[in-house]
Every structure is written in C-alpha cells, then in structure tokens.
Nucleic acid binder design. Structure first.
Lengths: 135, 135
DNA sequence: CCTAAAACGGACTATTATTGTCGTATTTAA
DNA sequence: TTAAATACGACAATAATAGTCCGTTTTAGG
C-alpha cells in the first residue's frame, strides 16, 4: 500500500527523460524502454495515455515518437498520477476511491473526515513537486 | 494505489473507538465488529496484531478483551500503519518496498532521490496526525 | 469441574488489482 | 512498398488483499 504503481513510475521516468532534452525533441517508446530497461509494451501504453491526456504529443509513422509539450515546471507529480491512473488515486480511504460499493459504516464512521484532511496534505505534497525536480 | 488497506482502516476505527471511552475500559473484537459492521475475523486479527505491537493490551478468557494502553495523542497514524502492515508501508517506490528484487534501472534512475524527498514529506504528514484527532 | 466467551494462530480460499504480453490495425517517412 | 512507429483491445500471469474457517488456549463464573 501507499506505493506508486509501476505505470506511474514508468511515466515519471519517461517524462523526466524527455525533460532532459531539448524542447521539441522526439523520443520513441522503444528508446526509453531500452534506456531504462522497462517492458516495452507497458511503457508504450503509458506513453499513449500521456499523449491522450495532452502531456506529450505523438507522431505516428516511421520517424514518429513523442515530444514533450508542456514545460516540466508545470507538470506536477499529482497531475501525472491522475493522468495515468484510472481511478481516483489519492483517495486514501476505500470508500472514496471505490464510490461504487457503498460504505457500510455510514454515520458511525468517525475516521473519515479527519483522514480527508490528511489526504489533503498528501495531495498538496504531490502537487508541489514537479517533473522539473526529477531532471 | 495510495490507499489505506482495510486492515489499517479497521485498526484505526478500533483504536479511535477505544480512545473514546475511559482509560482501562475493556472492549472485545466482537463488540467493535458489530458496532461498525466490520468482518469479525479480520478485525480480530488486526486487534491481535495491535496487541502484539503493544498498542493495546489483551486479556483472554471469558471477560477478556482489549484495553488501550498508550495515550491517543502518542498514537500517530504512521505508527499504526507500521504496526499493522508487514512490509515497509510508506515506501512509495517499489524498489524500496520490495528490496528483494533488485532494481534493473540502477544508476540510470534519476527519479529515486527526488521521490524519496517526497516520501519524507508524506511520512511527516502521517506522523503528525494522531488517533486523538480521529476521536 | 464444566462451560462459555474470549483471544490466539495457522491455513486456506476468494477476490481484486496490477503487471505484463500478444495480436492487429493504422500511420507515414523514405 | 516496406519498415518503424503509434494505437488499441483482449488476454494471461502474478501478486496483494480480503475474507473465512478451523482449531487451541485461556479464564471467569456457575
């Protein structure tokens, strides 16, 4: 628990790698996967998602690849996580991250509100660190 | 990801419940499980672990149960999580929480050190909140 | 001494989430 | 036309978590 998923780790690695080069430089998933020894297929999926979310833009075809479009300073860890994960990621309580199944504790739950504050603090930490700091 | 496990949630609920009563008051696992609609067996395991770790003390036999021994103010969320979870819980990076399998990125990993700082911030947040605030 | 209620502890199953893989389609530079 | 890349969906393998079940031990009270 309380661990970044591989997918997020891979995404952070890819973004930080791209942030090192010049703006507009094209990187391929293959290149990154070989450079850091990451499973190609999974990394490719992650980069596709980052492209879909507008963090990087993609170019298909032979000399294709990805370029970083946003400035690293504007890419917070929190935003990257949110882009990659499907579910609400910083919902430390299960009743928040799985809104589907209703909580059976309901009214009696005294821990929810305080823990939401704690969650706020964690969110803040994740929002204050950017990809820039990973370069 | 980034979610408290049920076991931790149950532990926090149990401890906060016990913190509401008078010092030395005895609570049983059954009582707590019924009160908050938690699966008895699992809660019982969690409370046994908390007892083993010295957070509560246990009494066997007919009128047995558990009492809170530490003052709620001294029980941080971090300490409770650590007590309940087996693995390092606040190691947000997999290479830290699974020290067994060696990281294949090694030297090239630029994200590790910065993320360790981030982890430190999160740890701090978890260490600053106590069970007292859940009551 | 017996019984019932509790903690204790191990093994096991079920469920879910994550990770990784595969196949195929699409795009495009050369 | 080909090869190299992204795009996308489905699937399998793995791992983590949650939950259940079985018994043992302890002990207050009748």
């Amino acid at each position: 628990m309380f661990q970044l998923s591989k997918r997020v780790e891979y995404g952070l690695i890819a973004l930080s790698h791209m942030a090192k080069g010049q703006l507009g430089q094209i990187y391929t998933a293959k290149e990154v996967s070989e450079r850091y020894n990451l499973p190609y297929d999974l990394l490719a999926k992650v980069m596709q998602k980052l492209a879909k979310r507008g963090f990087i833009s993609s170019y298909q075809g032979v000399r294709g690849g990805y370029t970083l479009v946003k400035h690293p300073v504007t890419l917070t860890i929190a935003s990257v996580v949110d882009a990659i994960e499907d579910r609400p990621s910083f919902a430390i309580m299960q009743c928040e991250s799985h809104p589907a199944d209703s909580c059976t504790i309901h009214k009696q739950c005294t821990i929810k509100d305080p823990l939401l504050k704690l969650q706020g603090s964690i969110n803040k930490v994740m929002e204050e660190m950017t990809i820039m700091e990973l370069v």
